[in-house]
Design a binder for these strands. Structure first.
Length: 747
DNA sequence: GCATCTGAG
């Protein structure tokens, strides 16, 4: 075996503060990665915190009692053995095994990162998880959060350099760190948690870590996942061909869930779902119900109907049916209303009457992100909205699609968290077996990869097609991304990173947006583009309550700038900032205070990045001039998202892709201009473009001459229109030339 | 004349 600078260190001889006595150093005699589970257990059970050298508090001892009952704890000896002997391991731990809190601690007891100036990282797909787990583990280790144990997420770094040795972080955050330190040299061990969720960031990290493991034999990697994917990851991470990475498996601790199927396929899943919920309410024992539907409107609609029918039932038969509360749950719901899912079920109407019940109607946010205690019944119609990507027209859209078996299992599991439960699947067992995919398609196969490709190039990946992906994206997806980055001048013709591309990659933005922000000082409007980019990076700011459509539309009209929706966003933000003193301003104007605050945060973060790269923040005083400048800067980023009006009314054709689209009804333009630039293409009842601003064709030819090279343009209305502009320009310049000539002669 | 599943930087 090759010599290893990390593990070949001698055993620890004295405490780090130098005072020497072995009794003061709990890790006395320990060699990193050769610590036995017995030794670690002895230190945990002793009285001195080995990381702070302070006595353990009574609180620590109390929590330790609870930790000892976790399934992972029972397998500590085996874990230490596997960890100490292998560079990469795959770990399977079902819900309730305690893997997320315990494994990283075990790793610290073996790795001793604090004595080597290293850290252990544990990634999470979601920010809330990173924060809450870090808090819990800090308590378990008897240290203050942000000291020895911390977390790092966008906008918040709760770590202390030199002190923190166990860091929970979002997967995206570790990917960002890798861009500036491709060897992840700060870490001795990296743990990827929830790898089965296959987020884009986790997928890329898996590829990077697999390659990094060869460069850094001292780096240990643990991939934690659900059962179904374990073998796939074992094979992928096998260091030699045909030798899979070792598996460490811990059982979960959940209650059994009985699964029921329908006899026949249900033609209308919403109707069937409502019927099933009411059936449970009438016939089943007490316990709350979780119903999965696909979107906001569907959920609100179902809630209304369930409420209505439950009331009808109650009035028909008050002695046998208890009260029912129905609560919607989706991400755009204000946090206050999201909290309502944790309310207890309603009490019986009379002391001995039938008990009340709570129904939560949710998107798949309740599948992974939010856990509701007390759920005993799950109703699963088998659908969710999923992102799909069409590389040919470079469009991501949301489609209601059947879920995967893994997803169905996850949903069913939600019924067994507190006691045995039941899951009602509104499809046949045969369909479950034969029609559903095993796994949800990983995100990397369903996304526009422009951003990812830029990140990979920045990470030093030379050949994107040959990169060792867990699942390789379609070559066309990669080609389309490379093409876009080349047009934006982020990559040169050989696929190499340009200086501009290097800066673009540093911004947490899509490449088009990063480009337009970086060039905006040339148009004297970086202050405004910065705002627009921030507004485009947060959820929709407009509120449109079902019972106040007219009022909210009128409020929006007051803030609309007729030249374009981008300018309207700018106007909204400026008004928001000018009215900060008025707490009700956002609400009174039918705007989301939450989204606006988020925009403010994003804007501040981007501003710091701009300062780091010396990108000036400049503006223009004259408003007309300013708006003109902004519209030109937009072209520099979004020249590939241009549509040209065809014929009458609301019919547009996207340039080059030739998709027939309409302006989205939310669009604020007061006319139908010939040329527009758009931020988004959405496929709903028909194809629409959303967030639209008018541009001049001359700008397209001037600021994106490569893309609008007419000799390589498909024939059609658009080409003819651009040729006409070009001809006019040439004529004018001939005119000016002749005038110049006259002038010269006169002189 | 319409609707945004979820998560990340």
């Amino acid at each position: 075996m090759a010599s290893n600078p990390y593990t070949d260190l001698p055993p620890l001889a004295s405490s780090s503060n130098g005072s020497g006595a072995s009794s003061k150093e709990p890790f006395f005699g320990c060699i990193p990665r050769k610590v036995s589970a017995e030794k670690a257990r002895a230190i945990m059970d002793a009285d001195l915190n080995p990381f702070t050298k302070q006595p353990f508090t009574p609180q620590y001892k109390k929590i330790l009692q609870v930790r000892r009952k976790l399934p992972v704890y029972a397998q500590m000896t085996e874990f230490f053995r596997v960890f100490n002997e292998n560079q990469i391991i795959v770990m399977v731990g079902e819900t309730g095994s305690g893997k997320t809190t315990q494994i990283p601690q075990f790793v610290c007891y073996s790795d001793l990162p604090h004595l080597r100036g290293k850290m252990v990282a544990c990634t999470q797909p979601r920010r809330v998880a990173a924060m809450s787990v870090a808090k819990r583990v800090a308590d378990e280790m008897d240290v203050p959060l942000g000291k020895q144990v911390g977390y790092s997420i966008r906008f918040e770094d709760m770590t202390e350099s030199g002190t923190t040795f166990l860091k929970y972080m979002t997967d995206g955050m570790l990917l960002r760190e890798a861009m500036n330190d491709p060897d992840l040299s700060r870490y001795s061990t990296v743990i990827l948690d929830e790898a089965h969720e296959r987020t884009l960031a986790t997928d890329i990290l898996m590829g990077l870590l697999k390659a990094l493991a060869k460069r850094r034999p001292d780096l240990k990697i643990i991939v934690m996942s659900a059962t179904l994917d374990a073998l796939k990851f074992q094979k992928y991470f096998g260091l030699k061909k045909d030798v899979p990475a070792p598996l460490f498996k811990v059982p979960g601790r959940t209650h059994p869930v009985e699964v029921f199927y329908t006899q026949e396929p249900e033609p209308d899943y919403v109707e069937a779902a409502i019927r099933t919920v009411l059936m449970i309410h009438r016939a089943e024992d007490p316990g709350d119900i979780l119903l999965f539907l696909t979107g906001e409107e569907e959920i609100e609609d179902a809630c209304r109907k369930i409420k209505q029918e439950a009331e009808d039932l109650m009035s028909q038969d008050p002695d046998s049916v208890g009260p029912l509360v129905c609560t919607p749950l989706y991400s755009s719901l204000p946090p206050m209303q999201q909290q309502r899912i944790f309310d207890p079920p309603p009490p019986p109407r009379t002391p001995d009457g039938p008990p009340g019940r709570k129904v939560v109607v949710s998107t798949n946010i309740a599948e992974t992100s939010l856990t509701i205690d007390g759920i005993v019944y799950v109703v699963d119609p088998g659908f969710s909205k999923q992102k799909v990507y069409n590389p040919r027209i470079r469009v991501e859209s949301l489609l209601v699609s059947p879920i995967s078996k893994a997803s169905a299992q996850q949903r069913a599991g939600r019924a067994g968290r507190t006691r045995p439960g039941k899951c009602f699947r509104l499809y046949t067992e045969k369909d479950f077996m034969k029609e559903l995919e095993e796994q949800t398609y990983p995100e990397i196969l369903r996304s526009n990869l422009a951003n990812t490709v830029l990140e990979l190039v920045k990470l030093g990946v030379k050949d994107l097609v040959k990169f060792d992906y867990v699942d390789a994206p379609a070559p066309e997806t990669l080609m389309r991304a490379l093409e876009l980055l080349n047009y934006l001048k982020a990559l040169d013709d050989d696929g190499g990173l340009t200086d501009l591309g290097g800066i673009m990659a540093e911004f947490p933005l899509d490449p088009q947006m990063a480009k337009m922000l970086i060039v905006s000082p040339e148009f004297n409007c970086s202050n405004e583009i910065l705002t627009i980019v921030a507004m485009l990076s947060v959820p929709n700011v407009w509120l449109r309550p079902a019972n106040m459509r007219k009022e909210s539309d009128a409020a929006k009209q007051l803030m609309t700038v007729p030249d374009g929706d981008h300018l309207t966003l700018l106007n909204v933000y400026n008004n928001y900032m000018n009215n900060k003193g008025d707490r009700n301003w956002a609400w009174n104007n039918f705007l989301s205070a939450r989204a606006l605050l988020q925009a403010e945060n994003v804007r501040a973060q981007l501003q710091r990045s701009m300062e780091r790269f010396d990108i000036d923040i400049v503006t223009t005083q004259n408003e007309n001039k300013l708006y003109l400048n902004v519209r030109q800067a937009l072209v520099c980023g979004y020249f590939m998202q241009v549509a040209h009006k065809e014929g009458e009314k609301n019919a547009y054709l996207t340039v080059k892709d030739n998709q027939v689209v309409g302006l989205h009804p939310s669009c604020g333009l007061d006319t139908h201009p010939d040329w527009v630039i758009f931020n988004e293409f959405v496929l709903t009842t028909r194809p629409y473009i959303r967030t639209v601003t008018t541009v001049k064709p001359e700008w397209l030819l001037e600021y994106a001459s490569n893309y609008f090279d007419l000799s390589a343009f498909p024939n059609g209305e658009t080409k003819r229109a651009l040729q006409a502009v070009l001809k006019k320009q040439t004529n004018t310049s001939v005119e000016t030339d002749s005038r110049k000539a006259k002038k010269a002669r006169r002189a």
